[in-house]
Computed example of a mutant assay.
Amino acid sequence: MSNPKVFRELCRAEVHTKPTSGVLPGYVQANLLILPKSAADSFQDLCARNPVACPLLTKTLGSPHILEEHAKFISGDSFDIRTDFPKYNIYQRGKLVEQKNNCRKEWSKNHIGFLIGCSFSFEDALKQAGLTPKNVLRGTNVSMFVTTKYLDSAGIFHQCPYVVSMRPYKPEDINRVREITRPFKKTHGEPIDWGFDGAERLGISDLQKPDYGDSLRIAEDEVPVFWACGVTPQLAIATVGHMIDGLVIGHTPGHMLVLDATNVC
């Protein structure tokens, strides 16, 4: 594909239905959460209180085609939040009930869509520095883990755990990895922890058994490095979804929206 518009059209036509790590390097990618209006204010407050785990980029304004900061992220009018992700998760009362390639049927005028920054956005910067993430090298999804770290509560959202993404690096490269990713504050920024002791602090017991995504082997000269992850809002829905009336929609982990923007640091 030549540009994000073409890629979104491939998703809309259900031609591309796979994870988006490594797709169109340099362009910003976004996570998704679509909520009934009754829960939207609580979720926006959750993002404000937890900007590392839930960096809010923008939200829809009364239509699946219009974003609050549309021109900043999408050029022109070729956009549909219901179709332009490769794959969607559909939740009812906090339970995952279906995965689909579009959510046209589920979307209603009562819904508000939120775009959350994604760490895939800084993978090209790591690649340009000679620190290509292993998931990009292998063409697989990143490893994602549920942790024992909790978000600060907001509105109906409480006792909601962090999800982290993991990329292995050599210990001597970690400072450089931190420097490269730190400016990407709208797409999770620098790692929140690293090392096998970091995994223990986060409550991760088996690094070869991710809760989402694909397993990545950690070589003998590598350690795990953990970033906050935009799947966190979907786990929040699983945690408090029984309090939400109506369908909630998210992206399938690893299957992001590719935006036209190249820099939202």
Score class of each variant (00 low, 15 high):
133 P>D: 10
197 D>W: 09
8 R>W: 00
211 D>V: 12
121 S>E: 06
7 F>S: 00
218 I>A: 07
139 G>L: 11
253 P>I: 04
30 A>N: 11
62 G>C: 08
97 V>K: 12
33 L>Q: 02
147 T>M: 07
73 F>W: 11
48 A>H: 03
58 T>C: 02
17 T>D: 07
255 H>V: 05
113 G>K: 14
255 H>Y: 12
129 A>M: 09
206 D>N: 15
21 S>K: 05
228 A>R: 10
214 D>V: 08
30 A>V: 04
13 A>Y: 07
153 S>Y: 01
32 L>Q: 04
184 F>A: 07
56 L>N: 06
201 R>H: 10
199 A>R: 03
128 Q>V: 08
259 L>K: 02
220 E>T: 14
43 F>W: 11
168 P>W: 02
72 K>G: 06
222 E>K: 05
78 S>G: 01
198 G>E: 04
119 S>G: 04
238 A>E: 13
92 Q>I: 08
219 A>R: 15
76 G>T: 10
57 L>F: 02
69 E>Y: 14
263 N>Q: 14
131 L>F: 03
153 S>C: 10
263 N>L: 11
172 E>W: 06
9 E>H: 07
116 I>S: 00
211 D>W: 06
166 M>L: 12
150 Y>I: 09
248 V>G: 01
57 L>P: 00
119 S>V: 04
230 G>V: 07
34 I>P: 00
229 C>F: 12
180 I>T: 05
60 T>V: 12
220 E>I: 12
47 C>R: 06
198 G>L: 12
213 G>A: 11
73 F>Q: 07
44 Q>L: 13
197 D>M: 13
150 Y>T: 08
134 K>F: 03
55 P>E: 06
262 T>W: 07
31 N>Q: 05
154 A>Q: 06
118 C>N: 06
123 E>M: 10
20 T>K: 02
264 V>P: 00
264 V>Y: 06
140 T>D: 08
35 L>N: 01
221 D>F: 10
193 D>C: 13
7 F>W: 15
4 P>W: 04
81 I>V: 15
93 R>P: 00
221 D>L: 10
7 F>I: 06
232 T>A: 15
67 L>D: 01
257 L>P: 03
184 F>D: 00
148 T>P: 01
148 T>M: 08
169 Y>F: 15
